[in-house]
Design a protein around this nucleic acid. Structure first.
Lengths: 208, 208
DNA sequence: ACGTGTGAATTTCTTCACAGCC
DNA sequence: GGCTGTGAAGAAATTCACACGT
């Protein structure tokens, strides 16, 4: 195994996807950028950009800055998104539906290749060209046959923990959950939360 | 008052909504909790819980811990969610639709009271009992008549910046955006981003 | 001259450890 | 005895500032 995960602070890892968002915009205007410009764009200091990137290698050139395409490739590689990631959607209610119709994942190398639900009225329904909702009872087979390691969890709060445990048992290693519930799972499972209420409550602190 | 916004680090503010999520679960089992239990639930140290809360007041009792209802009220008050917040939804595509049908906001004191879009085919459509999609041209009136200060932005990426600026011009103070675009707005405007691709890219770093 | 990469300095955040109160 | 609130200590993150390569 490589020295790759020696120990990069998570706070730095969390910024890398934002660098990619910025780079994709800057690329429209120029071939290269530099730490000052990138920082201004994202609201970080130039020093921080350089420090962050220096954790992973020497991607810039003195006097010139960073080649945008090259830096993008490097960050893609660091984040392991230099490949296709197949995902399963668990829960096909409102949010689940919206996700299935959202094209932003595929554009980024993520692909929802299956969707499951426990509601008999939904099972068998065809959502788009590719996807027909399957029974959640088939989840084990779906995960193993397609070698899926990421799940998007959009089920009601009261069953989120239970279903998450099932997903982990069947081999899921990363979960992006929309359920407003703190999941208690083994530490080697990566969980990211999307909870608009938490975001709104963060906003209101600063309003009056 | 008050010394309230003297200068609480944002990193602490960001944790308060999570405390609320935890408290709402713990409240089902007991009247009181303590820093150890709360920390274990959220994955924080007990010391951090106490330090965080001590920034805002003395909410606990030695030997006993924290009364859950009381602590909840206090945090609600700190976050300014001891009231109803009216919001406008801007953009009624996939995600916008899902949000309008999502009941989790109202349960938390947030209410979408109007929705707008620029698509003539959508304007006039009734989404649920309460809400009929209006024209984005009416946004100024909607905001001022209803004294709205929070917007949820679910428009295509290429128009997000432009529309966000319009919202700010008409009095919006906080934006929760789902568009995968870094918004450049005055510093006194609070922006929170929900970007599932960024969350997924964060996850994949730790997978292989 | 420009801008990176990086030790050193500084600031911020977290944990420790304990006095004090229930 | 149990648990908070808090200064002090320690760890981590950020910024500074500059040597060096282009």
């Amino acid at each position: 195994m490589s020295t790759k995960h020696q120990e990069i602070p998570d706070i730095i890892v969390a910024r890398l996807p934002r660098y990619l968002r910025a780079l994709s915009v800057l690329r429209e205007k120029a071939e290269t950028t530099n730490s000052k410009e990138l920082g201004a764009f994202l609201g970080y200091s130039a020093a921080q950009i350089r420090k962050d990137l220096s954790q992973f290698g020497e991607f810039g050139k003195q006097g010139t800055g960073y080649n945008i395409d090259f830096l993008t490739e490097q960050i893609n590689s660091i984040l392991n998104i230099d490949r296709e990631w197949k995902m399963v959607l668990v829960g096909c209610g409102n949010i689940g539906h919206a996700i299935l119709n959202y094209s932003g994942f595929m554009a980024s190398g993520f692909q929802v290749i299956a969707a499951v639900d426990s509601d008999n009225d939904l099972i068998g329904k065809k959502i788009n060209e590719q996807i027909t909702i399957q029974s959640i009872d088939d989840i084990e087979q779906i995960i193993s046959e397609n070698r899926i390691s990421i799940a998007m969890l959009t089920v009601p709060a009261n069953v989120a923990q239970e279903i998450a445990e099932k997903l982990v048992k069947f081999g899921i290693k990363g979960i992006l959950t929309y359920a407003p519930v703190i999941l208690s799972l083994p530490v080697n499972i990566r969980v990211e939360y999307i909870d608009p209420v938490i975001s709104l409550q963060h906003i209101t602190y600063y309003l009056d």
